[in-house]
Amino acid sequence: MKTSPLLLAAVLLSACEKKSEAPPPQPLPVTVAQPVKREVTIYRDFPATLAGAQQVEIRARVRGILSLADEDLDFAGNLVEKDTELFIIEPDPYQQATAAAQAAVERAEATRDLKQKTFERISKAGKSRAVSELDVEIAAAELAEAEAAVAQAKAQLNESVLTEDYTLIKAPISGRMSRLLVDPGNLVGATESTLLATIIDDSVMYAYFEVPERPLIRFLERRTADKENEPVYQSDIRLKLADGSIYDKPGKIDYIENEVDPATRTARVRAVFPNDDHQLAAGLYGLVGYPAGPNPENVTEKEAFVVPSSCILRDIGGNFVWVVDDQNIVRRRAVETGDSVEKPDQDPNKPKELETVVNKGLDGTERIIVSGLQRAREGAPVTPVPAEQAAKAEE
């Protein structure tokens, strides 16, 4: 039986069409991960200036030639203990004035003793009518005058002793001395209390910063009547220095001003930091970081969902992430984001990874595309690869 040429041609054409059909493309792979819910600490940073716990100006309170209490001791820039002798201001004239005041007391006491004996003698004679009553009253008045003279002389002596004490200047507090502002040998205290140096107690440092009105309301929400148990005062305050380094000792707030400045709409707040090893100095600039919850609308909430910051995208509709549904189809998911934080427990040899807080839009079950974002588009099929599997494949 012969095959029809027309039928043979149809069979050959059909075979060629089947051979030319290509298999459908496989969905492109993307790396996915679920959002992680963990405790997040967000620091609200405020510019601050550091100051010592105490700062005292050392001034000359008497007139005279200045000299050092110890010629061999260099005070400038060094730590000194309280009551360390620092300066002497020409004590000789004041010692002589004290000696003269002491002599005046002794003279007044001698006069008083004489008046006392005279009064006793006249009083005894007055009882026997040997002298008039007026003589007795005059003797009593002279005795009272002598006693007042003694009191006045003693007051002048005390003043002289106090003034003499001013000639020896001691450190009023323990702390670090500044340079000498007046060289020894100069006349000081001639027309005013000459500033000789300053001393700062930097064992404890204060950081003063201004808190705007809105964040201050959050502070006040956490304030209670009991300062010792108040969360706002017990918080671990972070200090970031001008070079970007973080001071290794946390501080705490110990004072909030009792009113808001109507001109700036801010209130001054003070944080205190230990400085036993003297790593901080008065006048330094820093950022005081107040630890707050991840959600500014709920200050008591400590946990939040976080996702890699690189997977947060934005368009005219706002922030969103790409998620893969149960059918492995890409879907857009709108989210409300918060601050970004560093991922904890990172390898110090690798670049730092940032995570972004997601306050709304996720429930923790989503498969979020964290790598291969350029392949994602609404409704596109993909092949999801878990992040752990992708990491092992890279190794």
Rank of each mutant, 00 (worst) to 15 (best):
L8M: 13
V11H: 12
V11Q: 14
A15P: 08
E17W: 12
K18I: 12
P24Q: 05
L28P: 03
T31S: 04
V36H: 12
I42L: 07
A51V: 01
Q54F: 04
E57N: 14
I58K: 02
I58M: 03
A60V: 00
V62D: 00
R63F: 01
D70Y: 12
N78W: 05
L79V: 11
I88F: 03
Y94M: 02
A101M: 05
E106Y: 06
A108G: 06
D113N: 11
K115Q: 15
Q116S: 12
I122E: 00
I122P: 00
S123R: 08
A125R: 11
G126K: 01
R129S: 13
R129P: 00
A130N: 12
E133N: 10
L134M: 11
D135F: 00
E137F: 07
I138S: 03
A144S: 13
A144R: 14
A148G: 09
A148T: 12
A149M: 14
Q152Y: 15
A153N: 02
K154E: 09
N158R: 09
V161T: 06
E164A: 08
E164T: 08
E164Y: 06
I169M: 05
P172Q: 05
S174D: 07
G175D: 04
R176F: 07
R176M: 11
M177R: 10
L181A: 09
P184E: 04
P184N: 08
G185C: 02
G185A: 03
A190V: 12
T191R: 15
S193L: 04
D202Q: 11
D202G: 08
V204W: 01
V204N: 03
V204M: 10
Y206T: 05
Y206R: 15
A207R: 05
Y208T: 13
P215S: 12
R222N: 12
R223A: 15
V232P: 00
S235R: 04
D236V: 04
K240V: 14
L241W: 06
D243R: 07
G244M: 14
G244V: 04
Y255Q: 03
I256F: 08
E257N: 12
N258Q: 14
P262L: 11
A263F: 14
R265G: 08
R268C: 08
R268P: 06
R270V: 13
F273S: 02
P274C: 13
D276K: 10
D276T: 13
D276M: 13
Q279F: 07
A282N: 06
L284N: 06
V288H: 00
P291H: 12
A292G: 11
V299C: 09
T300I: 10
E301P: 05
K302P: 00
K302M: 12
K302G: 05
E303T: 14
E303C: 07
A304L: 05
F305A: 01
P308I: 01
L313G: 03
D315A: 07
D315L: 08
I316L: 11
D325H: 15
D326P: 09
R331C: 14
R332Y: 10
R333W: 04
R333V: 03
D339R: 15
D339Y: 11
V341W: 06
D345A: 13
N349I: 00
K350W: 05
P351L: 10
E355D: 10
V358C: 05
K360M: 08
T365P: 01
E366A: 03
E366K: 04
I369D: 01
V370W: 02
G372V: 02
R375I: 06
E388F: 02
A390N: 05
A391D: 09
A393E: 14
